[in-house]
């Protein structure tokens, strides 16, 4: 059956209330955000929402006919689970349309304490096959899964044939090489990891310095990049660092390139995907506005049977280069 004419839901990031409003005004169907603490995987200084700011933002979304999702997608620390429970309660209290969770214990808490609160399974849960996804649906009533960025379009179609809940896939933004929710690389250099503390390469451990016409990036005291004056600078993440391994010198794990699967919107719709997710809660409202407007046009064009044109956002991306990632597995 053809998916032509299907209305795909655009799920957009917001790191601040201003970015939240910018996303809605630019055409987001749904905006996701997080609290200003370690309960979400974008725990950066000056970013995220207080409970009051979230309440105001949720109300703004609903007034404009949009939805608001709250990511509480890190893994609670042993002995400190109360903070994660409180954040689930706060999200329910302010009227969030769903919470995005990864931890089994937290899913259990939310499903029992707030049976009417819609649950989405975070990409951090790394549920990448039908059996795993169906378990979360049966056990906790999860309604949507955000698929890890390790599947091809064909694999996404296969998953959708065998599950009864919605799927959401990343369409644009930063890429991680590790299986989602399993990355501890940053903690080897900084003692902190995205899954536990909500920050990959925390800013408190990052240092940039201009040395002999090169920009040197250090993480936890380790030099991980040296880029020349005319080269694009990457984020200071270990997975995209330049290292020497034997006689090889370069990006050992992953190139600093960003996902742009805009051209694959028709194939993703045909594969049964419900929603397209844009990464970038750590970015500015300028990024949010530009990316959301671009992709809202793309999903509207697809729904109207017009050709989908992608690739206009390269200047906004890490490394100033883009890839379709594992959706087309030519890079393996």
């Amino acid at each position: 059956m053809s998916a032509r004419g299907k209305k795909l839901e655009l799920v957009c990031p917001a790191g601040t209330p201003a970015a939240f409003r910018a996303a809605i005004d630019a055409g987001a169907h749904t905006v996701y955000c997080g609290f200003n603490d370690e309960t979400n995987a974008r725990n950066f200084p000056g970013l995220n929402f207080s409970t009051e700011e979230l309440a105001t933002s949720v109300a703004y979304a609903h007034k404009k006919g949009a939805h608001a999702l709250v990511a509480i997608n890190t893994f609670p620390r042993a002995g400190a689970v109360e903070l994660w429970h409180k954040r689930v309660d706060d999200a329910a209290k302010v009227g969030a349309d769903a919470v995005i969770l990864a931890d089994i214990g937290l899913l259990d808490y939310a499903s029992k304490k707030h049976p009417n609160l819609r649950l989405h399974l975070s990409v951090q849960a790394a549920a990448a096959n039908a059996d795993a996804i169906s378990f979360y649906a049966r056990a906790f009533g999860v309604k949507r899964v955000v698929l890890p960025r390790v599947l091809t379009v064909q694999e996404i179609a296969a998953v959708n044939r065998d599950i009864e809940i919605e799927t959401e896939v990343f369409i644009f933004g930063g890429l991680c090489v590790m299986a989602e929710g399993r990355c501890s690389l940053s903690s080897y250099a900084t003692g902190k990891s995205p899954n536990m503390n909500g920050a990959c390469s925390p800013a408190s451990h990052v240092e940039y310095r201009e040395e002999d016409d090169e920009l040197v990036s250090r993480l936890g005291g380790f030099a991980i990049h040296r880029v020349g004056a005319k080269e694009a600078a990457p984020y200071p993440t270990l997975c995209k660092g330049c290292f020497e391994a034997g006689e090889y010198k370069g990006h050992v794990f992953e190139d600093p390139s960003s996902l742009d699967a805009g051209a694959l919107i028709p194939q993703l719709a045909e594969a049964g995907v419900t929603a397209l997710k844009i990464e970038g809660r750590q970015r500015s409202r300028s990024y949010t506005e530009a990316v959301v407007r671009n992709f809202r046009k793309a999903v509207d064009d697809y729904a109207a049977g017009r050709p989908v044109v992608g690739g206009a956002l390269r200047d906004l991306t890490e490394g100033q280069t883009t890839t379709a990632g594992s959706y087309r597995k030519t890079w393996r």
Binding site: K230, A232, A233, P234, S284, S286, Y287, D315, L316, E318
Partner: peptide, 10 residues
């Protein structure tokens, strides 16, 4: 402008 994009482009 987006600060990250200005950083990427140097």
């Amino acid at each position: 402008y987006d600060g990250d994009a200005l950083f990427f482009s140097r």
